[in-house]
Design a protein around this nucleic acid. Structure first.
Lengths: 225, 225
DNA sequence: ATAGATTTGTCGGCTATGTTACAGTTCCAC
DNA sequence: GTGGAACTGTAACATAGCCGACAAATCTAT
């Protein structure tokens, strides 16, 4: 099913660009493919064999639940991102799942073990992959140290700036972001309470720095953030 | 110089255990070797060619300085740990240095580019290394989410527990840790102010959970942490 | 032994942010 | 279109932990 499609999906990712047709086929053979709609929950750790996923379309959030049942947003995954057992070590105890944010998503996946085989046969891919994981690590470090050392307002600013950079569409000197997050989501991402987030967003709106709605966020002057 | 010694140093690390004599020699040829005393500062990013370091003896802390001149402790490196450009991407803008904590340290290092070559020739090493970096990432994630969601007291407890696990010596039912950190260091690691750390430590001492001195920390009952 | 530097102890005021609580809005399904 | 669910707005109150300030203890070098 979709054999060609999957091929191109993987081919599309910068990590796999250097691979030959045959090599990608190796992954494709066992590749899973899945579509899902807004609000759906996709479990990936625990369940069956450990996999690596590639989000082809839409947005999802990775949510972790701790012992007390508190939910934390671990990551927002966008079109083109890899997620899952990126460390190549299945860890069963982490209690994470993915929730679909956009209207619908398309995900393809392959088995971690197959990927390992591929890496063993392609040292240069292994190297790129290591760098890829390293980059991810660096990003995480960065965002965490932001969370720790800055106050909620700065964190929100930084978050909006990053978001705008990744997904915003520049229209004249404004930046328009499609807003698929609730204020609660935003609050969780910047690690603050929903109320504080609401307050800060409203403050920014009265200041004229942003125009907020459930559909989109318009940043009137990105340089002011 | 020390050719044999360096060989064994590298050989000793679990990552390199599977390598042949020749392969390690490849790294050794350009390996640097260095000793330093307490308080010394070792710059590693910026400076010359990007390197990966292996701490053979002692303890160091990795300190980052941000734009405003604030120091944050990024990591505590112990005997046997690798540090430096582990992501295989030299990044010049990060302003980090290492400071020697224990009385003296021994460090050996090799060039990132040589290591890359080695990885390219050893797919299985590449794979282990990828997993190694992945593990590091997981640890970082973990400790950061601790920092964010728990209060200072819990963080201190967790820190002591981890420290005891890594380096503590069990004597009867007590755990003794050699204390090479100042209270200020501890405060920075658990991301709180020096005063709060002091207060919490004293509180624990009056509670009888620990016995604190500049030389060592004794945890009277590890199970209570 | 002495002086200076570093580390530790303690206090009170201050502020950002979490919490609780409730009301108003928007969205969606039937 | 209507009812219920999910989301957003606002306020009062509590508090953890930061900050400044200073004193006491301990280490280090000469």
């Amino acid at each position: 099913m979709y054999e060609d499609l999957k091929y191109w999906y993987l081919r599309d990712h910068k990590l796999f660009r250097t691979l030959s047709f045959g090599q990608i086929r190796q992954l494709c053979i066992i590749t899973g493919f899945k579509k899902a709609k807004k609000g759906e929950i996709i479990y990936f750790s625990s369940s069956d064999l450990p996999r690596i996923f590639l989000l082809k379309k839409g947005n999802i959030k990775i949510v972790a639940v701790d012992e007390d049942g508190n939910e934390t947003i671990k990551d927002i995954i966008q079109k083109g991102d890899l997620f899952g057992e990126l460390t190549l070590e299945a860890d069963s105890q982490s209690n994470e799942y993915a929730k679909v944010l956009s209207d619908d998503v398309a995900i393809c996946s392959f088995l971690m073990s197959d990927f390992e085989d591929l890496l063993l046969r392609n040292p240069s891919l292994a190297l790129s992959y290591t760098k890829f994981v390293g980059l991810k690590m660096k990003r995480i470090k960065n965002s965490y140290s932001n969370l720790i050392s800055k106050d909620a307002k700065t964190r929100l600013f930084q978050f909006l700036k990053d978001w705008a950079e990744k997904e915003g569409k520049k229209i004249e000197d404004k930046v328009v972001i499609e807003n698929y997050l609730t204020q609660n989501d935003i609050a969780q991402i910047i690690c603050t309470s929903r109320q504080t987030a609401t307050q800060l967003l409203n403050e920014m709106e009265t200041n004229g720095t942003i125009i907020y709605s459930r559909k989109e966020i318009i940043i009137t002057d990105i340089s002011k953030l």
